[in-house]
């Protein structure tokens, strides 16, 4: 077991562990539970791939504060970094939000996709006639 995962396990109440809730989801919800960090994600959603300097220009917060919030977002995999030469660009990573989406909305999406598929087939069949 890795050091990082045992840290999370220690924080889990007994009986709360199961496969469907990865431990790092706690990091995701903690990271999302702050308006400044949500605002940083909003900024990246509007314009993905920004440097720290660009993000600071539009935030009413110190550079140090933005750095701290970005580190938490990175730890939760909500933000990922891409190096372009010497520039460190921050990207909104949709992966954790996709996991949340699938957990509670995914089954409805599946029905929607099936409905679309049925519609497509029906339309194609009627074209053939």
């Amino acid at each position: 077991m890795t050091a990082a995962s045992s840290k999370h396990l220690d924080m889990q109440p007994n009986g709360c562990l199961n496969d469907s809730m990865p431990n790092d989801m706690n990091d995701v919800f903690k990271a999302l539970a702050d308006p400044c960090r949500r605002e940083l994600l909003d900024r990246l959603y509007e314009d993905n791939g920004q440097t720290l300097g660009e993000l600071c220009e539009r935030m009413a917060m110190t550079r140090q504060g933005v750095t701290k919030h970005l580190a938490l977002l990175e730890a939760a995999n909500l933000v990922v970094v891409v190096w372009r030469g010497r520039e460190k660009l921050h990207y909104l990573n949709p992966e954790p939000i996709q996991q949340i989406h699938e957990r509670w909305i995914g089954k409805f999406e599946r029905h929607r996709l099936e409905a679309l598929d049925t519609l497509k087939r029906t339309l194609e069949d009627s074209q053939d006639e």
Partner: peptide, 12 residues
Amino acid sequence: MNKPEFVYVTYI
């Protein structure tokens, strides 16, 4: 140099 438009990172 253009920056990438879409980045997705997942741990498997």
